[in-house]
């Protein structure tokens, strides 16, 4: 579904990602693991087109690496970004309408939004509230729902567990597992290695802007070795 080859990402003059090849097959959940500053978010930003990048990015065979941000979304890339970035001044429902802004059939969009409200009742209860008043976990659900309403072919999830309480983290990973079971293709960026490995099919480990190892998720065990490598704390 998604392949990158010798993808480099830049922040101004600084090269943050030094040419990586990753590939995500349809229906798979692939995880990018790595410590802070390894270039995980930069990789996702390169794929969505929000940072300057070189190399090629293919979505379903089509080269999208020259397309502007909007067109990549229209081709089927959606992201739940780092820090959620819900539109705090818009209501929960309006946030979802933004997510589904490309759907021509507004009645259909409304039905889908109602579906999400039954799926995440907590969002349904607060549909008229400004999204800025939601808790972190609720904002994360909203960000995921917003991304999915554009009917993407691949969903990019950037650290969905960041800054959330352990119970909420478990809930978020449950949602990810559920999405995968429904056939959503997912590229996940995480620091919570063990939880991420459990939901993934394939894992890339990123270090200093390069892939240091990769393989089927099963090869990484429960991820405890990796946690040591990523954090430098060996238990």
């Amino acid at each position: 579904m998604l392949q990158t080859s010798s993808l480099k990402a830049f922040h101004g003059p600084i090269e943050a990602v030094h040419g990586i090849d990753i590939s995500v097959a349809e229906g798979q959940c692939v995880t990018l693991l790595g410590p802070n500053g390894a270039g995980k978010t930069s990789t996702l930003s390169a794929i969505t087109g929000t940072v300057r990048a070189t190399g090629t990015i293919r979505l379903g065979g089509e080269d999208i690496s020259r397309l502007p941000v909007e067109d990549r979304c229209r081709r089927g890339i959606a992201i739940s970004p780092e820090g959620r970035r819900v539109f705090a001044n818009l209501s929960v429902r309006d946030n979802l309408i933004m997510g589904g802004a490309l759907q021509p059939d507004k009645a259909q969009l409304n039905r889908e939004i109602e579906d999400w409200f039954t799926h995440f009742p907590v969002l349904g209860e607060r549909h008229a509230q400004p999204a800025g008043t939601l808790s972190g976990g609720e904002q994360q659900m909203l960000a995921i729902a917003r991304a999915l309403l554009s009917k993407p072919r691949i969903l990019l999830l950037d650290e969905p567990s960041l800054g959330l309480a352990p119970m909420i983290v478990a809930k978020i990973f449950e949602i990810v597992r559920d999405l995968k079971a429904r056939g959503t293709t997912i590229l996940l960026v995480e620091q919570n290695a063990s939880a991420a490995i459990r939901v993934s099919d394939y894992v890339y480990v990123l270090n200093n802007g390069l892939i240091s190892s990769h393989g089927a998720a099963a090869n990484f065990g429960d991820g405890s070795d990796l946690m040591g490598e990523l954090t430098g704390v060996h238990v």
Partner: peptide
């Protein structure tokens, strides 16, 4: 509030 996120929703800048 966040123009880039609007573009990430596929809405043309």
């Amino acid at each position: 509030l966040d123009f880039e996120m609007v573009r990430l929703c596929g809405i043309r800048a």
